[in-house]
């Protein structure tokens, strides 16, 4: 987190030095700052971890945006066509995530993805209950959610 603040500071410094206060230039400054941190990462506490993590986060955002658009299309199609193709149901998913923060993020991501809605976490934090619109291929749905969880854990840990 502190390394991220360093990166932001470097971006602001870049914007100040180049004297161009536009968003594009800020993004470029962030990139420059990231490059500097990558070079100097061994000197900074937690630097190597941060440098490894940023590409993962970006990849995750791209993957998630794609998922979001695809799933939105499926739900929109089902809403607009007269017959209901859906087979809704509630399923219990065993969690590998143990921290509250990890479960919160995973649950919210599941809720944001169309077609799945996280209902609740069991009181002992072992199972997440998910309402899904398309239970036809349950194994695949479970595998998808587990893949999402693995990505979240990869970033959080």
């Amino acid at each position: 987190m502190t390394v991220f603040l360093w990166n932001l500071l470097l971006a602001i410094a870049w914007v100040g030095v180049s004297g161009n206060f536009s968003e594009v230039n800020f993004a470029f400054g962030f990139l420059v700052g990231y490059g500097i941190l990558a070079v100097a990462s061994r000197q900074i506490e937690g630097g190597a971890r941060y440098v490894r993590k940023v590409p993962k986060v970006l990849k995750f955002i791209a993957f998630f945006a794609y998922d979001l658009i695809k799933a939105n299309m499926v739900v929109a199609y089902d809403v607009m066509t007269p017959r209901h193709l859906m087979q809704p149901g509630v399923m219990a998913i065993e969690l590998d995530a143990s921290e509250d923060m990890e479960i919160t993020i995973l649950g919210n991501l599941i809720s944001v993805t169309p077609g799945t809605l996280s209902l609740d976490v069991s009181s002992d934090r072992k199972v997440l209950y998910v309402h899904a619109m398309y239970m036809g291929d349950e194994e695949r749905l479970r595998a998808d959610i587990k893949a999402l969880e693995a990505r979240v854990l990869e970033i959080m840990r």
């Binding site: 087979q87 809704p88 509630v90 209902l119 609740d120 199972v127 209950y129």
Partner: peptide
């Protein structure tokens, strides 16, 4: 109530109405 087309409900009966606990099995 859930829709009659609901194929599966693994959450059913796992809520504790008294103390609002949710059991994992």
């Amino acid at each position: 109530p859930l829709w009659e087309g609901t194929v599966k409900d693994e959450l059913k009966g796992r809520y504790d109405a008294q103390n609002h606990q949710l059991h994992s099995s």
